[in-house]
């Protein structure tokens, strides 16, 4: 199943939500989440959060950037 996921990553034409991919693979989203985590641990995928903290010297907001729009997404891509 992990190989199927990697193949989907390589071949699919566009982005896909975790829920939709889970439906395509006929697994629960929580199970797919575990598989993705395993692939990340193996170094086959990368995981990034939409709201990465940025160290910005342009203002003095100290950790909270008032201008950042939080997309709240977690994104997996081929490593």
């Amino acid at each position: 199943m992990l190989r199927q996921i990697l193949r989907t990553f390589r071949e699919a034409p566009g982005p896909i939500s975790l829920d939709l991919l889970a439906a395509q693979l006929d697994v629960e989203p929580a199970v797919l989440d575990g598989m993705l985590a395993e692939l990340v641990a193996m170094g086959r995928l990368t995981r990034t959060e939409g709201h990465e903290p940025v160290a910005c010297s342009a203002c003095n907001s100290q950790g909270f950037c008032p201008y950042v729009i939080n997309t709240e997404t977690v994104c997996y891509a081929l490593a």
Binding site: T8, F9, R10, E11, A12, P13, G14, P15, I16, S17, L18, D19, L21, D33, L36, E72, T73, V74, C75, Y76, A77, L78
Partner: peptide, 9 residues
């Protein structure tokens, strides 16, 4: 380009 999967809240 590679596909990526998004976890939506």
């Amino acid at each position: 380009d590679s596909l990526f999967v998004l976890e939506l809240p």
